[in-house]
Design a protein around this nucleic acid. Structure first.
Lengths: 350, 350
DNA sequence: TTGTACGCGTTATCAC
DNA sequence: GTGATAACGCGTACAA
C-alpha cells in the first residue's frame, strides 16, 4: 500500500548502468555522453523520479529550511510578515518552519530548541515580550547558526536586523494629533522591555517636545502582554479615563493594543473621535470598517518579512563569515482616515 | 567557523565503544548494561549531543513533517486553523510546512508539488477557489500520501474531512434575521464551486423556506475570489443596492466577505444596522469594534485545525490502510452583537 | 552484553 | 565516458 519512491537506483537498474552515471546525467555533468544523458532523463521522466531532499540534506549537511519564531500567527502584522518570508523562501527553495512563542519566554526557548534540533539552516526571530535574557539565542548564534532578528530585536546579538522606523512612526502619529489641536495625548504601549516600545515612546516624546507639549508620565500606560490579556488594555484605558486631566487623544503602539483599545472604548460607549481621538499602529483592516475610518499607522510587514529572509539567506549561503552587520529600517505609513480626527474647530471640549 | 554537530560517532570514540552500543544506550535498549547506559548518557550530555533528525528521516523514510495548504495565512479564520494545527503537531513532534495558494489553482499545484518533493508525511488542505480539478490531489492520495481535507473539501477523494456545520450556521444566521423582522434578506457568497458555498446557501434557503419567505435569485451574489479582489464585493453590494426591491439585510458567508461588505457599506455611508442589517461569518474581532457590535457567525477554527491534524497523524501512524473515513462536523457559533440588529418595531423602513 | 556490517538516497573521488 | 566505493548519521539484524 505504502508507495515506494523512485530513486536513482531504480533508474540505474532499468537502464543497466550505474547509479553514479545516473546521478551525473541528472546533474547535467559535462563528462556524460549526450546519448546517455537523454536516456537517463527520459527514464527519469517516465518513472516520475523525484530527488529525495532528505538524502540530499544529509549529504550536504543542510536542511534547506529556515525557522521562524514569532509571538503569534493570528495577528495581522505577523501573518503579513510571514507572507513576506514565505514568498522569498519559496522562491529560493527553502522551507519555512513557523513556531509561536505566545509571548512566553519558556515557550520561546522550547521553540528554539525544537527548531535547532530540526537542524534549520537559519533563524528569523522576533522576541517574545517576556524575553529579557537572550543567552539561549546567543548560544545558537555562537555555534554558527545564522540569525536575523526583526521587529522586536536586541542589540546584544551581533547580527542583521530589520525593523520599522518606530521612532518616526510614533512621532508622526503624535504630530498628527497635535496638529489637529489635541493637547492631552496619552499612549498605550507594550512592555517597556521591548525594543519597539522604547523606540515608539521616544518618538512620541520627541513630538510632544518639538511642539512644546509637556510629557506627562500618567498618560503613558504599559501592557506587559501587549493585549494578549485583554484585561490589561481595559485597565489601561480605564485608568486614563479616571485621571483628573482626562486625555483627549490616545496613541496605541501595536496591532493588538489598537484593537483592544477600540474594543474597550466601544464597550464603554465612548465614541471615537467625538469623545476621544485614537491613532494606532495597525496592520489589520479594522480602520476601514469604522465610520469614519480610523487613522492608523501601517507597518511595512510584508517588506519586513522579505528583507529579513533575504538577509538570512544571504547569511546562510555566504561562504565566509560576515563581519559587517546591517540594520535595515523600513518606513511605516500613516494612513489618514477621512475626518477620523475632527478639525480643531469641531473638537469637543471635555 | 561552521560548527560541527556531535554525532554518536563522537560519543563512541570518546568512550572507546562502538556506535551501535551508543545508539542502543541512547534508545534505552534493554540489552545494554546499566553502567554503559549511564556512561553514554553522561557523555552525550557533556558533549551536548543532539540526534540528527535528517539522518533519522532518511533511515525511517519519514520526515516527521506535514504539509498545509491554505488559500491565505493572513486571514483570521485560517490563521486560527493553523494555530490549532501547530498545537497538535508540535505536541507530537511534527513539523508544519505551510504554503498558500492565494486562491490560485496553479499555485496550489505548485504547492503540492513542492510539499510532496519535500516528502511530507501527510497533507492538510483546504481547496483554493479556482480548484475544480483535483486529479493532482488524487494522484498523491493514490500514491499513498495521507491527506485530510478541511473547510473547503471535495467528495471526489475518499479521506477524512473536518468541516463546520455550514448549513446549520447559515440557517441560524438567516433565522436570526427573519426573527428580527427582516423580509428581504440577501446573501453574498463565495464561488459557487466551493463546498462551503453550496452548504451555506442551502442553509440560507432552507431558513427562508421554513419561515415562508420566498427565495429570490437576485438576492444572491457570488464573489469568485471571495473578496481577495475587493472590487468583487463592492460590485456585489452595489448591485444589491440598485435592485428595485432593495434588501433590508445581508448575510455574508465568509470572513473576507464580511469585512469587505462592511468596508463597502462604510465607504458609501450606509449605516449598519440602521440602513441595512448585516450578519456574517467572521473569525476576526471586527465585530467587537463596531458600535453597536455586529452579530457574527464564528467558526470553530482552532478546533478544526486540531481535529484535522489529529486525524492526519492517526492516518500517518496507523499501520494498516483505513477503509472507513470520518467526516467530522463542528458547530459554528452565532455571537449576538447587542442590539446590532434592531428589534422589529425599531426597524427603519428604507 | 557488545561489536560488525549494512542500508536509507545521494554525490564526490577515485579508478578504469 | 563510466563504474565502483566511501561518506553523510543513524538504527538494527546478525554475529560474537
Amino acid at each position: 500500500m505504502k508507495f515506494e519512491a523512485v530513486t536513482i537506483k531504480d533508474i540505474a537498474k532499468a537502464l543497466g548502468i550505474s547509479t553514479s552515471t545516473v546521478s551525473r546525467a541528472l546533474r547535467d555533468s559535462y563528462e556524460i555522453s549526450p546519448e546517455t544523458k537523454q536516456l537517463v532523463l527520459d527514464c527519469a521522466e517516465t518513472l516520475n523520479y523525484r530527488p529525495n531532499p532528505i538524502a540530499l540534506s544529509l549529504k550536504e549537511r543542510r536542511s534547506r529550511s529556515i525557522g521562524v519564531v514569532v509571538c503569534e500567527i493570528a495577528n495581522s502584522f505577523f501573518s503579513q510578515v510571514i507572507n513576506g518570508i514565505e514568498s522569498i523562501a519559496y522562491d529560493k527553495g527553502y522551507n519555512v518552519i513557523i513556531s509561536q512563542s505566545h509571548e512566553s519566554y519558556e515557550r520561546e526557548m522550547m521553540d528554539l530548541h525544537y527548531l535547532s534540533s530540526r537542524s534549520v539552516d537559519g533563524l528569523l526571530i522576533s522576541l517574545s515580550t517576556e524575553t529579557n535574557d537572550i543567552s539561549h539565542l546567543q548560544a545558537l548564534h555562537q555555534k554558527g547558526l545564522p540569525i536575523v532578528m526583526f521587529d522586536r530585536i536586541s542589540d546584544e546579538i551581533q547580527t542583521h536586523c530589520v525593523v520599522a522606523d518606530n521612532f518616526k512612526g510614533a512621532y508622526e502619529a503624535t504630530e498628527h494629533l497635535i496638529q489637529r489641536g489635541y493637547k492631552k495625548i496619552a499612549a498605550i504601549a507594550n512592555s517597556e522591555f521591548l525594543s519597539i516600545t522604547t523606540e515608539r515612546l521616544a518618538g512620541y516624546k520627541e513630538a510632544l517636545h518639538t511642539y512644546g507639549h509637556k510629557y506627562n508620565n500618567a498618560y503613558v500606560k504599559h501592557c506587559f502582554y501587549g493585549g494578549m490579556v485583554f484585561s490589561e488594555i481595559e485597565e489601561a484605558v480605564n485608568k486614563l479615563f479616571t485621571l483628573k486631566q482626562r486625555p483627549d487623544a490616545i496613541i496605541t503602539t501595536s496591532d493588538k493594543l489598537t484593537t483592544g483599545c477600540l474594543k474597550t472604548l466601544v464597550r464603554r460607549g465612548i465614541r471615537v473621535p467625538e469623545d476621544i481621538a485614537l491613532v494606532g499602529f495597525s496592520n489589520s483592516d479594522l480602520a476601514e470598517l469604522l465610520n469614519p475610518p480610523l487613522t492608523v499607522l501601517r507597518q511595512p510587514a510584508m517588506e519586513m518579512g522579505r528583507d529579513a529572509t533575504e538577509l538570512l539567506l544571504q547569511l546562510i549561503e555566504s561562504k565566509r563569515p560576515i563581519t559587517q552587520f546591517e540594520k535595515r529600517v523600513l518606513s511605516p505609513e500613516l494612513i489618514l482616515g477621512h475626518s477620523s480626527v475632527p478639525q480643531p474647530d469641531l473638537q469637543l471640549i471635555k
